[in-house]
Protein backbone atom coordinates (compact mmCIF):
# COMPACT_ATOMS: atom_id res chain seq x y z
CA UNK A 1 0.00 0.00 0.00
CA UNK A 2 1.21 3.48 -0.76
CA UNK A 3 1.82 5.85 2.16
CA UNK A 4 -0.91 8.20 0.96
CA UNK A 5 -3.48 5.41 1.10
CA UNK A 6 -2.31 4.46 4.58
CA UNK A 7 -2.73 8.08 5.62
CA UNK A 8 -6.27 8.31 4.29
CA UNK A 9 -7.28 5.03 5.90
CA UNK A 10 -5.85 6.25 9.21
CA UNK A 11 -7.78 9.49 8.83
CA UNK A 12 -11.03 7.68 8.11
CA UNK A 13 -10.58 5.38 11.09
CA UNK A 14 -9.89 8.36 13.35
CA UNK A 15 -13.09 10.08 12.37
CA UNK A 16 -15.33 7.03 12.42
CA UNK A 17 -14.09 5.70 15.79
CA UNK A 18 -16.55 6.39 18.61
CA UNK A 19 -15.24 9.30 20.62
CA UNK A 20 -15.91 7.97 24.12
CA UNK A 21 -16.99 5.03 26.23
CA UNK A 22 -20.64 4.47 27.06
CA UNK A 23 -20.66 4.46 30.86
CA UNK A 24 -19.33 7.51 32.60
CA UNK A 25 -16.31 7.49 34.90
CA UNK A 26 -16.37 9.18 38.27
CA UNK A 27 -15.03 12.75 37.99
CA UNK A 28 -12.83 14.02 40.80
CA UNK A 29 -11.97 17.72 40.71
CA UNK A 30 -8.94 18.58 42.77
CA UNK A 31 -6.31 21.22 43.36
CA UNK A 32 -3.06 21.91 41.56
CA UNK A 33 -1.13 21.29 44.78
CA UNK A 34 -2.48 17.72 45.03
CA UNK A 35 -1.80 17.15 41.35
CA UNK A 36 1.78 18.46 41.59
CA UNK A 37 2.47 16.11 44.50
CA UNK A 38 1.75 13.01 42.42
CA UNK A 39 -0.42 11.53 45.19
CA UNK A 40 -3.37 10.67 42.95
CA UNK A 41 -1.24 8.79 40.45
CA UNK A 42 -0.30 6.64 43.43
CA UNK A 43 -3.79 6.26 44.92
CA UNK A 44 -6.06 5.87 41.90
CA UNK A 45 -4.69 2.53 40.68
CA UNK A 46 -5.33 1.16 44.20
CA UNK A 47 -8.92 2.47 44.05
CA UNK A 48 -9.46 0.77 40.72
CA UNK A 49 -8.01 -2.48 42.00
CA UNK A 50 -10.10 -2.49 45.18
CA UNK A 51 -13.40 -0.88 44.15
CA UNK A 52 -13.30 -1.28 40.37
CA UNK A 53 -14.06 2.43 40.02
CA UNK A 54 -12.36 4.44 37.30
CA UNK A 55 -11.72 8.05 38.18
CA UNK A 56 -11.03 11.00 35.90
CA UNK A 57 -9.25 13.88 37.59
CA UNK A 58 -9.65 17.54 36.79
CA UNK A 59 -7.14 19.99 38.13
CA UNK A 60 -7.86 23.62 39.07
CA UNK A 61 -7.32 25.90 42.06
CA UNK A 62 -9.67 25.37 45.03
CA UNK A 63 -11.85 28.37 44.09
CA UNK A 64 -12.31 27.09 40.54
CA UNK A 65 -12.91 23.51 41.74
CA UNK A 66 -15.77 24.71 43.95
CA UNK A 67 -17.30 26.50 40.93
CA UNK A 68 -17.02 23.28 38.93
CA UNK A 69 -18.90 21.62 41.80
CA UNK A 70 -21.65 24.27 41.76
CA UNK A 71 -22.10 23.68 38.01
CA UNK A 72 -22.28 19.93 38.62
CA UNK A 73 -19.36 19.19 36.30
CA UNK A 74 -17.64 16.91 38.81
CA UNK A 75 -18.90 14.29 41.27
CA UNK A 76 -16.33 14.68 44.00
CA UNK A 77 -14.16 17.59 45.12
CA UNK A 78 -10.87 17.24 46.99
CA UNK A 79 -9.80 20.71 48.11
CA UNK A 80 -8.07 22.60 50.91
CA UNK A 81 -9.85 25.66 52.15
CA UNK A 82 -11.91 24.67 55.17
CA UNK A 83 -14.05 27.81 55.44
CA UNK A 84 -15.22 27.83 51.86
CA UNK A 85 -15.70 24.03 51.94
CA UNK A 86 -18.02 24.30 54.95
CA UNK A 87 -20.03 27.12 53.39
CA UNK A 88 -20.20 25.13 50.13
CA UNK A 89 -21.92 22.27 51.97
CA UNK A 90 -24.10 24.64 54.04
CA UNK A 91 -25.41 26.28 50.87
CA UNK A 92 -26.50 22.84 49.67
CA UNK A 93 -24.01 22.55 46.80
CA UNK A 94 -22.42 19.55 48.50
CA UNK A 95 -24.01 16.64 50.39
CA UNK A 96 -21.32 16.39 53.06
CA UNK A 97 -17.67 17.08 53.74
CA UNK A 98 -15.08 14.81 55.35
CA UNK A 99 -11.52 15.61 56.27
CA UNK A 100 -9.02 13.43 54.45
CA UNK A 101 -5.47 14.40 55.27
CA UNK A 102 -3.09 17.16 56.16
CA UNK A 103 0.23 18.36 54.84
CA UNK A 104 1.73 21.75 55.56
CA UNK A 105 2.65 24.98 53.88
CA UNK A 106 6.28 26.03 53.63
CA UNK A 107 8.14 29.22 52.88
CA UNK A 108 10.72 28.91 50.13
CA UNK A 109 13.12 31.44 48.72
CA UNK A 110 16.48 31.97 47.02
CA UNK A 111 19.46 30.26 48.65
CA UNK A 112 21.31 33.59 48.86
CA UNK A 113 18.45 34.70 51.09
CA UNK A 114 18.54 38.44 50.31
CA UNK A 115 15.93 39.17 53.00
CA UNK A 116 18.22 37.58 55.62
CA UNK A 117 15.65 35.24 57.10
CA UNK A 118 17.32 33.21 59.87
CA UNK A 119 16.74 29.45 59.79
CA UNK A 120 13.75 28.27 61.80
CA UNK A 121 12.46 31.82 62.12
CA UNK A 122 8.75 32.09 62.86
CA UNK A 123 6.56 32.92 59.90
CA UNK A 124 5.34 36.32 61.09
CA UNK A 125 8.90 37.61 61.52
CA UNK A 126 9.99 36.11 58.22
CA UNK A 127 7.20 37.84 56.31
CA UNK A 128 8.11 41.12 58.01
CA UNK A 129 11.73 40.62 56.93
CA UNK A 130 10.60 40.07 53.34
CA UNK A 131 8.40 43.17 53.49
CA UNK A 132 11.36 45.26 54.70
CA UNK A 133 13.78 43.83 52.11
CA UNK A 134 13.98 44.52 48.38
CA UNK A 135 13.14 40.93 47.45
CA UNK A 136 10.26 39.72 45.33
CA UNK A 137 7.39 37.66 46.72
CA UNK A 138 5.24 35.56 44.39
CA UNK A 139 1.63 34.84 45.20
CA UNK A 140 -0.72 32.39 43.51
CA UNK A 141 -3.36 35.11 43.35
CA UNK A 142 -6.01 32.66 42.10
CA UNK A 143 -8.34 32.10 45.07
CA UNK A 144 -6.79 28.67 45.55
CA UNK A 145 -6.36 27.04 48.95
CA UNK A 146 -2.65 27.84 48.92
CA UNK A 147 -3.40 31.47 48.02
CA UNK A 148 -5.88 31.80 50.88
CA UNK A 149 -3.46 30.20 53.32
CA UNK A 150 -0.80 32.68 52.21
CA UNK A 151 -3.18 35.61 52.72
CA UNK A 152 -3.98 34.34 56.22
CA UNK A 153 -0.26 34.39 57.05
CA UNK A 154 0.10 37.98 55.82
CA UNK A 155 -2.89 38.95 57.97
CA UNK A 156 -1.23 37.28 60.97
CA UNK A 157 1.88 39.35 60.27
CA UNK A 158 -0.24 42.48 60.07
CA UNK A 159 0.87 43.24 56.54
CA UNK A 160 -1.21 44.10 53.49
CA UNK A 161 1.21 42.80 50.84
CA UNK A 162 -0.19 44.83 47.94
CA UNK A 163 0.37 48.05 49.87
CA UNK A 164 3.62 47.25 51.65
CA UNK A 165 5.47 45.31 48.97
CA UNK A 166 3.79 47.14 46.10
CA UNK A 167 5.43 46.00 42.85
CA UNK A 168 7.53 43.41 44.64
CA UNK A 169 4.35 41.39 45.29
CA UNK A 170 3.59 39.47 42.10
CA UNK A 171 0.28 37.65 41.70
CA UNK A 172 0.60 34.97 39.02
CA UNK A 173 -3.02 33.83 38.85
CA UNK A 174 -1.69 30.39 37.86
CA UNK A 175 -1.36 26.91 39.31
CA UNK A 176 1.20 25.78 41.87
CA UNK A 177 3.73 24.52 39.32
CA UNK A 178 3.63 27.64 37.15
CA UNK A 179 4.09 29.77 40.25
CA UNK A 180 7.08 27.72 41.42
CA UNK A 181 8.64 28.05 37.95
CA UNK A 182 8.30 31.82 38.24
CA UNK A 183 9.75 31.90 41.73
CA UNK A 184 12.69 29.84 40.49
CA UNK A 185 13.30 32.11 37.50
CA UNK A 186 12.97 35.36 39.46
CA UNK A 187 14.71 34.23 42.66
CA UNK A 188 11.63 35.17 44.63
CA UNK A 189 10.09 34.07 47.92
CA UNK A 190 6.80 32.20 47.92
CA UNK A 191 4.52 30.08 50.08
CA UNK A 192 3.94 26.60 48.73
CA UNK A 193 2.59 23.25 49.86
CA UNK A 194 5.00 20.57 51.09
CA UNK A 195 3.87 17.80 48.70
CA UNK A 196 4.11 19.90 45.54
CA UNK A 197 7.50 21.23 46.63
CA UNK A 198 8.91 17.75 47.29
CA UNK A 199 7.97 16.70 43.77
CA UNK A 200 9.04 19.88 41.95
CA UNK A 201 11.95 19.49 39.53
CA UNK A 202 12.94 22.99 38.48
CA UNK A 203 14.10 24.42 41.79
CA UNK A 204 16.97 26.52 40.48
CA UNK A 205 18.42 28.31 43.51
CA UNK A 206 15.33 27.93 45.67
CA UNK A 207 15.56 26.34 49.11
CA UNK A 208 13.16 25.72 52.00
CA UNK A 209 13.40 28.49 54.59
CA UNK A 210 10.57 27.63 56.94
CA UNK A 211 9.55 24.01 57.05
CA UNK A 212 6.09 24.52 58.51
CA UNK A 213 4.29 27.84 58.26
CA UNK A 214 0.82 26.41 58.85
CA UNK A 215 -1.23 23.23 58.53
CA UNK A 216 -2.88 22.35 55.26
CA UNK A 217 -6.04 20.29 55.62
CA UNK A 218 -7.71 18.61 52.68
CA UNK A 219 -11.42 17.95 52.71
CA UNK A 220 -13.46 15.77 50.36
CA UNK A 221 -16.98 16.71 49.29
CA UNK A 222 -19.69 14.82 47.44
CA UNK A 223 -21.46 17.21 45.06
CA UNK A 224 -25.14 17.23 46.01
CA UNK A 225 -27.06 14.69 43.87
CA UNK A 226 -30.28 16.50 44.78
CA UNK A 227 -29.13 19.50 42.77
CA UNK A 228 -27.66 17.49 39.89
CA UNK A 229 -29.31 14.17 39.06
CA UNK A 230 -26.38 12.87 37.01
CA UNK A 231 -23.98 12.82 39.99
CA UNK A 232 -22.63 9.30 40.53
CA UNK A 233 -23.62 9.09 44.17
CA UNK A 234 -23.04 5.40 44.85
CA UNK A 235 -19.52 5.25 43.45
CA UNK A 236 -18.78 8.66 44.91
CA UNK A 237 -19.69 7.48 48.40
CA UNK A 238 -17.70 4.26 47.92
CA UNK A 239 -14.62 6.26 46.98
CA UNK A 240 -15.02 8.70 49.88
CA UNK A 241 -15.49 5.83 52.33
CA UNK A 242 -12.37 4.18 50.99
CA UNK A 243 -10.12 7.23 51.14
CA UNK A 244 -11.31 8.23 54.63
CA UNK A 245 -11.31 4.58 55.77
CA UNK A 246 -8.38 2.67 57.21
CA UNK A 247 -7.05 1.33 53.91
CA UNK A 248 -7.09 4.70 52.14
CA UNK A 249 -5.63 6.50 55.13
CA UNK A 250 -2.79 3.98 55.38
CA UNK A 251 -2.11 4.35 51.66
CA UNK A 252 -1.93 8.15 52.04
CA UNK A 253 0.47 7.83 54.96
CA UNK A 254 2.72 5.48 53.03
CA UNK A 255 3.08 7.76 49.97
CA UNK A 256 6.69 8.83 49.71
CA UNK A 257 8.45 11.51 47.69
CA UNK A 258 12.24 11.39 47.90
CA UNK A 259 12.05 9.50 51.16
CA UNK A 260 9.63 11.96 52.77
CA UNK A 261 5.98 11.34 53.56
CA UNK A 262 4.24 14.65 52.88
CA UNK A 263 0.65 13.61 53.72
CA UNK A 264 -0.88 12.36 56.95
CA UNK A 265 -4.30 10.73 57.01
CA UNK A 266 -6.65 12.69 59.28
CA UNK A 267 -8.27 9.73 61.06
CA UNK A 268 -4.87 8.21 61.84
CA UNK A 269 -3.65 11.48 63.39
CA UNK A 270 -6.72 11.65 65.63
CA UNK A 271 -6.23 8.07 66.77
CA UNK A 272 -2.67 8.85 67.80
CA UNK A 273 -3.83 11.83 69.82
CA UNK A 274 -6.34 9.75 71.81
Amino acid sequence: MRPIQVFFIYLTVLIILPAEAKSRDLILATTTSIDSSGLLEYLLPKVYKKLNIKIKTLVRGTGAVLKIGINGDADILLVHDKDSEISFVEKGYGSFRKEVMTSHFILIGPSKNPADIPTNENTVNALNQIAKSKSLFISRGDESGTHKAELRLWRLAGITPNETLKRRYLETGSGMGATLNMASALNAYTITESGSWAKFNNRGNLVTLINHTSDNTYGIILVNPKRHKHILEINGRKFINWITGLEGQKAINSYKINGKRPFKGTSLIEEKNK
Binding site: K56, V59, G177, N181, K199, F200, N201, N202
Partner: peptide, 24 residues
Protein backbone atom coordinates in the same frame (compact mmCIF):
# COMPACT_ATOMS: atom_id res chain seq x y z
CA UNK B 1 -11.11 18.69 27.80
CA UNK B 2 -9.72 19.13 31.29
CA UNK B 3 -6.35 17.51 30.42
CA UNK B 4 -7.46 14.17 31.93
CA UNK B 5 -4.80 11.49 31.71
CA UNK B 6 -5.58 8.78 29.12
CA UNK B 7 -8.86 10.49 28.15
CA UNK B 8 -8.46 14.10 27.09
CA UNK B 9 -4.74 14.72 27.39
CA UNK B 10 -3.27 15.93 24.10
CA UNK B 11 0.26 17.00 23.19
CA UNK B 12 -0.18 20.70 23.97
CA UNK B 13 -1.87 20.13 27.34
CA UNK B 14 0.77 17.52 28.22
CA UNK B 15 3.47 20.10 27.45
CA UNK B 16 1.72 22.65 29.68
CA UNK B 17 1.45 20.04 32.44
CA UNK B 18 5.09 18.99 32.32
CA UNK B 19 6.13 22.66 32.32
CA UNK B 20 4.04 23.23 35.45
CA UNK B 21 5.76 20.25 37.08
CA UNK B 22 9.08 21.90 36.35
CA UNK B 23 10.09 19.10 33.95
CA UNK B 24 11.25 21.61 31.38
Amino acid sequence: GGNIDHITRVMTTAIALETSKGNL
